[in-house]
Design a protein around this nucleic acid. Structure first.
Lengths: 302, 302
DNA sequence: GCGCTTTACGCTGCGCGTAAGTATC
DNA sequence: GATACTTACGCGCAGCGTAAAGCGC
């Protein structure tokens, strides 16, 4: 009653014999001795439960049941080959899909060039990019929507995820070029804290890292906004100053503004690559991960 | 480069592990020791060319490539099972088709009851019946349109066919009940030859058998027709007498006619089962052949 | 007798189970 | 230390090739 066992060798031998109608030639085609080939056909006939060939010394030809099985065998071998080919295409990165979640700063600033290079290297792979705040990135990984994330919080105490540090970027003061702090000889948290400050929302990982880094000091929050572009607008309008990580400085590259690194050792945030623990990346995801690692040097970390 | 080998055991093992996500349980399900099962999975991964499971001591789960392969494996096993089931249905005579060619006399007289019984025994099998003259029957077999034939000529000197005798039927005089021959005490060819005779066409196997049997005597051909029903009509109209084999007597079962066996030993024709040499019958055809042989006793051979 | 398949028969090696090893929690 | 996968290892048997035997022409 248990299902009979069948192998691709048997199917290939069967088709070879159906084509050659001669045991000796079919055996050669299968790189087998003729008796071994004969035995292989016999085991196939036992497995199928039907005599598939009429053979005598003079002729070999398919039985009616053999002809029935011939079509099926051909289809089966094709399907098997197709399935293997498909997996191989994914392994060889001719096909695939990778979904990376990244902080907005990375998604807007550094990643696009890498994704472009990746697209040139592996044109068959579809790339999806989610720009989300750190918690959102990590949620996407946990949900198995994203393959991995580039986010600020580490594994966050979650046993199902694992993180390794990608890089650390330092914080910079941003203010108008005509602001007194722009010319201040020795910057410090205390000096900055005297001026109206443009905060990010409390949900922002940037804000959390900053609060943690300067504690117990506090800034005078003149505004609390969601987006760095808004921070830039407010600062440029002279409504306050702010402190942002290196990776976001591209928002502030304009003549009317000044950015100054804060030379305080503890004042930095670390970015992590986050993925599901114990689960390997797909071939496509691994390729993107590798490229990201290889291009780390291009991250201009002031 | 040569295509990798794959077996149903590997596919079943793969699906068991994908389902159980635990080597020990999956091994039990496959009736294998856990190490043997582990090795089987490894050989599958080698054949496919991709790691299909992420495993550590705590968890086993499909990789992305594994999930790709899972659907394919399920489909493949289904298709294989279906192919085997189909062949088995044919072997077990739950499906199939048999095409028999038979002389008109058999097709009209004796076969229908057998075909009806066959249809009751094997309702899944489609039966095709060709009623043709002997040469036509044999041509159908040679063309592989018919599985076998019940015909009068033997193998006919053809090396590609083989025939074995089915039965011999004797010849009978048919004439009107009021015809002098109806009351003749001792019939003979010579006595019959004095009367107008209704011949079959020369292409008829019946005619050929009859000519050969009575040679060198000849009948006085009053008519030469194609069909036995016509012979009956002509005889019934008093236009002549005729001589026909036992199997065709059903055409002449009416009060106005008399049929009398001709007690001459050599005067008979032999019917053969004809099939292609060296080619076995399909399961369905064999079943019909067997039934025909088993019902030979019901042939009323006068 | 010739050509082709099958049977006979050692032999190698794949693949099994048992047992020890290793890693993770 | 408990659990679960992997490695180590000895062994039996499936499956190979060589050689001999059947078998139909």
């Amino acid at each position: 009653m248990s299902a009979p066992e069948l192998s691709t060798r048997q199917l290939r031998a069967f088709l070879a014999l159906a084509q050659q109608r001669n045991f000796t030639r079919a055996a050669q085609q299968c790189h087998l001795s003729q008796p071994a080939f004969s035995a292989l056909i016999r085991t196939l006939e036992d497995a199928v439960g039907a005599r598939l060939f009429d053979r005598d010394t003079r002729s070999v030809q398919l039985t009616v049941e053999g002809r029935l099985f011939e079509d099926a065998a051909r289809r089966l071998l094709d399907d098997i080959g197709e399935a293997l080919q498909d997996v191989n295409d994914h392994v060889a990165r001719r096909k695939g899909r990778v979904h990376v979640a990244a902080l907005p700063s990375l998604a807007a600033g550094w990643l696009p060039a890498i994704l472009a290079e990746f697209g040139r290297d592996w044109p068959g792979i579809t790339v999806a990019l989610s720009d989300a705040l750190s918690d959102g990135c990590i949620a996407l990984v946990r949900n198995k929507q994203a393959d991995f994330a580039l986010a600020a919080a580490g594994s966050g105490g979650a046993a199902d995820l694992q993180a390794h540090a990608l890089c650390s970027d330092r914080f910079h003061l941003v203010c108008r070029a005509d602001h007194p702090l722009a010319a201040e000889r020795r910057l410090s948290i205390a000096k900055i804290a005297r001026w109206p400050f443009i905060q990010m929302a409390r949900t922002s990982s940037l804000r959390q890292a900053l609060d943690a880094a300067v504690a117990p000091a506090r800034f005078k929050a003149a505004f609390e906004v969601e987006h760095l572009a808004t921070v830039m607008g407010l600062v440029d309008a002279g409504l306050g100053v702010s402190v942002v990580p290196t990776l976001t400085l591209f928002h502030f590259q304009r003549a009317s503004l000044v950015t100054r690194p804060l030379p305080l050792p503890g004042l930095q945030r670390t970015l992590y690559v986050v993925q599901r623990r114990g689960e390997s990346l797909s071939s496509a995801a691994q390729a993107l991960h590798d490229l990201i690692m290889a291009r780390l040097a291009t991250l201009a970390l002031g």
